Amino acid sequence: MCRWLAYSGEALKPAVLILDAQHSLVAQSLNSPLGAETVNGDGFGFGWYPEGSTKGSTPALFHSIEPAWHDENLRELTNSVASPLFFGHVRAAGGPPIQQTNCHPFRHENWMFMHNGFLDGFTAMKRDLVFAIDESLFPLIHGTTDSEVFFYLALSLGLQDDPIAAMSAAVRRVEEVGQAKGIRFPMQGTLALSDGETLWAFRYSTAHRSRSLYHSVAIPELREMYPDAARLDVFGDKAKVVVSEPLNDLPGAFVEVEESTVAILNDDGYHHEAFLASDD
């Protein structure tokens, strides 16, 4: 459906990953070997927490319906700002129209969210899911995507207090509604979520055949593996990235996030937890 990346670490010009990497996000928008669609040209989004921002700061967003490879503003912006945590997303529209309000990432206060995948049978489920969203949040939904509805459903279920529990509850609500309507596999996707400090990356689908998801190996480890790789010099020791597919061909540079897993990234590094595993 789409391709995305999320970066956390020392402040970095986003163009390093979005534009300049060997298999950058923009390169993936033109040719995505691991994606369900090869081309992801139905708009894009870029969201970032500005360098020096404090806890609870609101991220900035830039959305466009242009193909990412065609947008000069994206090049200007990602080469001009620096950010310690940013999201990038290129879209292959699966039904909802191509418009800025349908471009990821989505934002609520200091939270950002993006999704690669879909809620199968969303048209049949939409009324029930929207009615489960807190009344105070409903006016904030500006687009028509299943992803934005899912985000606000998770917010309604306590995302700001316990992100993993709320995402779990939102997935279960989608599955309950979908299966009540005869939809066998309602949930599909990889999802990124951040409050500006921690980054959560989820890989889950009802059928347990989710879209691809990887994260980088720790930079100090990579430097030991590739002491002559000058491309690593731009990154600080805390730099880490989660991606739909690897950004380069260096063997061992990226590890796959397992099915039914949430990867949690912060200044302490990485760790993985089971997320709605099949035996839960």
Score class of each variant (00 low, 15 high):
residue 83 S to R: 10
residue 211 R to L: 09
residue 40 N to K: 03
residue 273 E to L: 07
residue 200 W to S: 05
residue 90 V to D: 03
residue 82 A to Q: 15
residue 27 A to C: 09
residue 251 P to C: 08
residue 193 L to A: 10
residue 103 C to D: 02
residue 207 A to V: 02
residue 158 G to T: 04
residue 89 H to V: 04
residue 151 F to T: 14
residue 48 W to T: 08
residue 93 A to W: 01
residue 133 I to V: 15
residue 167 M to R: 03
residue 259 E to F: 10
residue 175 E to Y: 01
residue 155 L to A: 06
residue 239 A to I: 02
residue 260 S to D: 15
residue 38 T to C: 06
residue 150 F to G: 10
residue 165 A to D: 06
residue 152 Y to E: 13
residue 121 G to R: 01
residue 128 D to Y: 06
residue 223 R to T: 07
residue 83 S to E: 13
residue 269 G to I: 09
residue 180 A to N: 10
residue 25 L to F: 07
residue 185 F to R: 07
residue 7 Y to M: 10
residue 188 Q to C: 10
residue 127 R to Q: 13
residue 124 A to H: 03
residue 251 P to W: 03
residue 176 E to S: 10
residue 221 E to C: 05
residue 217 V to T: 12
residue 144 T to A: 14
residue 260 S to P: 05
residue 111 W to D: 00
residue 34 L to T: 12
residue 39 V to N: 11
residue 150 F to V: 11
residue 177 V to F: 04
residue 74 L to G: 08
residue 4 W to R: 08
residue 65 I to K: 08
residue 147 S to F: 00
residue 268 D to H: 13
residue 36 A to N: 14
residue 198 T to Q: 08
residue 273 E to Q: 12
residue 151 F to Q: 09
residue 14 P to I: 04
residue 205 S to L: 00
residue 250 L to H: 03
residue 70 H to F: 06
residue 159 L to N: 07
residue 34 L to M: 11
residue 3 R to L: 04
residue 260 S to C: 14
residue 28 Q to V: 03
residue 212 S to Y: 01
residue 87 F to N: 08
residue 113 F to K: 01
residue 261 T to L: 05
residue 52 G to P: 15
residue 141 I to L: 15
residue 122 F to K: 06
residue 183 I to D: 02
residue 275 F to T: 02
residue 67 P to K: 14
residue 127 R to K: 14
residue 20 D to E: 14
residue 241 V to R: 00
residue 211 R to F: 07
residue 110 N to Y: 04
residue 187 M to K: 01
residue 2 C to H: 05
residue 246 P to N: 01
